[in-house]
Design a protein around this nucleic acid. Structure first.
Length: 263
DNA sequence: AATACGAGCAACCGCTTTTAG
DNA sequence: TCTAAAAGCGGTTGCTCGTAT
């Protein structure tokens, strides 16, 4: 299998078979557009033959998706787009396709380039780094809040809090989705496992006190915007317990178990 | 005017994941 | 269930163009 896949890669990457590489000409673009208009997207390996192009299917796909698609938005990024990219990058890291999914008309390649050339520097200069809790000493070395030894629930004093007594700036990472960056959940979009169609959570309660509130604001495929107004410190096991207290179903618990602490 | 340098971006490469038979 | 092919993804490369020297 590996040999076959390697061979397939070689076929696409090699110039031995006369495949053209480098910048696309206007004529090639025209041929590709005509082909896709005639038979639709997909079956990329057969596109070069159908279009009369000396390119590999992969190259055709990339050209179409990143440049020729009619719904592509060109031009400068707006402030709103810029802000959204920064916030999503804080949450998702270099998951460009996911980020692009939140910006209609923008491609992952475009966003990636924009990040690498402009935003990364800007974010660095603005010290847009993840904010650590003010009272970091109250936190354990793992980044988890200290717990009550009897209830195993987090001690309220172990988490930095605002004036209303709710927690500030918990750092979490959705581990099941192989994201590598810690993030500040406050007002940020949160990834939801794609297998979960609906998010039922409206509130999680513990002994009558609202621990966290989630507001569903999007019905996208794999991203739901959850706004955690005042988020309490928690980790996966705490949440599981809380969810069961609240009568949540397995999907709800799974969402929350996909969240793991990272300092 | 010539050259060097850096920024921006399109395209490529190779790996992983998904799909189809 | 297994395998090969196709599609998707993110990192990297290299070309072009503008600016500084």
């Amino acid at each position: 299998m590996e040999r076959e896949r390697g061979a397939a890669r070689k076929r696409c990457s090699s110039n031995d078979d006369g495949l053209k590489k480098g910048a696309w000409t206007a004529h090639e673009d025209k041929l590709l557009i005509s082909c896709i208009n005639a038979s639709g997207e997909g079956r990329w390996t057969s596109v070069p033959k159908r279009a009369g192009l000396k390119r590999c299917g992969k190259s055709c796909r990339l050209r179409w998706l990143n440049y020729l698609r009619p719904d592509i938005k060109r031009g400068n990024f707006s402030e709103e787009e810029e802000d959204l990219i920064i916030r999503l990058h804080k949450l998702l890291g270099n998951r460009w396709s996911l980020i692009a999914g939140r910006l209609p008309g923008r491609t992952d390649n475009e966003i990636k380039n924009y990040w690498n050339t402009a935003l990364a520097k800007k974010v660095h200069n603005q010290k847009f780094a993840i904010q650590r809790p003010d009272d970091i000493n109250a936190w354990t070395a793992t980044g988890k809040p200290q717990r009550d030894s009897n209830t195993e629930l987090p001690l309220s004093s172990s988490c930095p809090q605002n004036k209303t007594g709710t927690a500030l700036n918990p750092l979490i990472r959705p581990k099941a989705l192989r994201y590598t960056k810690a993030c500040n959940l406050s007002s940020l979009p949160v990834l939801k496992p794609s297998s979960v169609d609906e998010l039922h959570l409206q509130s999680m309660q513990n002994n009558g006190d609202v621990i966290a509130q989630c507001k569903e604001s999007s019905a996208d495929y794999d991203l739901n915007l959850l706004l955690f107004d005042d988020m309490y410190a928690f980790d996966g096991s705490d949440l599981e317990e809380w969810m069961h207290l609240d009568g949540a179903d397995d999907d709800d618990v799974r969402i929350l178990l996909d969240v793991d602490w990272e300092q």
